[in-house]
Design a protein around this nucleic acid. Sequence first.
DNA 1: AGTGGTAAGTGCAGCGTACATCTATCTGGT
DNA 2: ACCAGATAGATGTACGCTGCACTTACCACT
Lengths: 122, 122
Amino acid sequence: MTNSNDEPQGGLPRNYLRATLLLLIGEEPAHGYDLLEQITQLGLGKVDPGGLYRALRVMERDGLVSSYWEHSTAGPARRTYQLTDEGTEWLHAWAGALRESHRYLSVYLKRYDCIVSRRLVP
Amino acid sequence: MTNSNDEPQGGLPRNYLRATLLLLIGEEPAHGYDLLEQITQLGLGKVDPGGLYRALRVMERDGLVSSYWEHSTAGPARRTYQLTDEGTEWLHAWAGALRESHRYLSVYLKRYDCIVSRRLVP
DNA sequence: AGTGGTAAGTGCAGCGTACATCTATCTGGT
DNA sequence: ACCAGATAGATGTACGCTGCACTTACCACT
């Protein structure tokens, strides 16, 4: 097939990375590597570290999160992120948007089940 | 700021266009303009016509759909699309993928409601 | 000294999406 | 007969997320 990708990543929402990072940091301030592991266990298989760190930097540039270096005695220094007020607003906005997406998917799946059960598409 | 849009289109799934077109054509063969209206009423506000027609051509190139010209007496000629066997397989695959996304969104929203109700994020 | 885990970052190309613009045909009103 | 508007399909282009590969640096253990 020309186009290739069988389910690039299962048709996840656009900007799912930003959205998920907002949620996780909203739950509790964290650093990138920690978020990388959390996000992997959240159902999304193998997240690209580069993309994650990049997303965090961009989100900080956009004022959604703020960060500070944490020099631990064990291991390399790490940058811990926390939500700003603006980031919190965005989290609420994203939650609303994803709730709509959730409804959209419900409709999609319902209609899909419908055509399958009717064997219109064998 | 890299992306200032509040909810570009509500965080819809990647390739939602292809997926939705597969579903609608799977329900019943149709032409582009018809799909354009159906897809608009499906919850997604204002779909880009250019992108839709382009997506259909690409899908045909990839062998997911086949088309034939229909010269109706009323209005311009229109290209009617129907699913191929391969397209049907892809529809099943997409449905599976979107079902996973649906679950992912359920988890996301549950956790979001959780932090909101605990007022960790006021 | 070397290996492996922790932690963060850059470079780059592909592709979907959004937005604007274009062509052509047929219908309805004046 | 003429023109606006609906119907129908298509291209050009720029932006940004994403994915893959690669690099740097610190620490611990052998």
